[in-house]
Design a binder for these strands. Sequence first.
DNA 1: ATTGCTGCAAAGTCTTTGCATAGGA
DNA 2: TCCTATGCAAAGACTTTGCAGCAAT
Lengths: 150, 150
Amino acid sequence: MSTPSDTLHPAPTPAHLRERLAGAGLRATQQRLLILECLLVLPGHPTAEQVHRRAAEQAPSLSLGTVYKTLDSFVAAGLTKRVASAEGGSRRFDADCTEHHHLFCTNTQEIIDYCDPQLDKLIREFFATKGLANFQPHSFSLHITGDKLQ
Amino acid sequence: MSTPSDTLHPAPTPAHLRERLAGAGLRATQQRLLILECLLVLPGHPTAEQVHRRAAEQAPSLSLGTVYKTLDSFVAAGLTKRVASAEGGSRRFDADCTEHHHLFCTNTQEIIDYCDPQLDKLIREFFATKGLANFQPHSFSLHITGDKLQ
DNA sequence: ATTGCTGCAAAGTCTTTGCATAGGA
DNA sequence: TCCTATGCAAAGACTTTGCAGCAAT
């Protein structure tokens, strides 16, 4: 299992943040640097509101509208993904754009990342062999619903 | 692949609808019978709005609020599921509560059902062997993103 | 100097709620 | 009859938009 999703992730360096924005072709504004940092640091796939709450600690003038616009531009640039969820509420974002799967905890509503190259291989091979009628698959994401233990 | 999702499904009989509601412990009101029928008949996992639009053809006085309340009670009773989607927009519903997977078409935004017992078996066996740290899985749903051909 | 981003506030979309009335068991 | 579901309309939650001023390249 990848990074645990109930603790803060290690803070990325400013240089790393700039690099990531540049790589996506986005201007490195103060707000974007901060928002990206919050997104990387916050556990459990945060909402725009949660990103704003945390970012506003350092930049109280940052508006929620800007957070929405910024997250949208991150998604458009492929820097961030939106997380699929059957529950209502706000949309949630994921700074990890590598292909991975999600564990949905029925009790806590957490969405936990799950990486497993072996599983990826199994799925890709299954569809390579079997194929899909009239459909060209690009990516696979397994949603595993259940309960976190302990 | 299961029932195609771009054409109407065959209409269920009134008796079948009553039975389904009774099985879920829900009163068989005119509105519920109609809403359930629309849900079963409409392709591609409709929104509350779409269910209302279709149902209102037969019962113009049916309100959108009632459709929302009814769909919520269907979900609570296990008669219907909400569909997970990373796209924004309205929540979408699925009358098929058996375990199955979804194809997400990037172009048309359609969500197409995909059933494959062989795939189910493959996934279940993978996790039976491998296990998940601190997590008890209940169900698996594979999200396949890609493009519908032709 | 340009170009695009930000902040603000207003508007928009989707969903929920409260309550009086109607309808099913 | 009793109790829940419905319809209506208002409120609520979440998100988007327009525009003037500002910051990054």
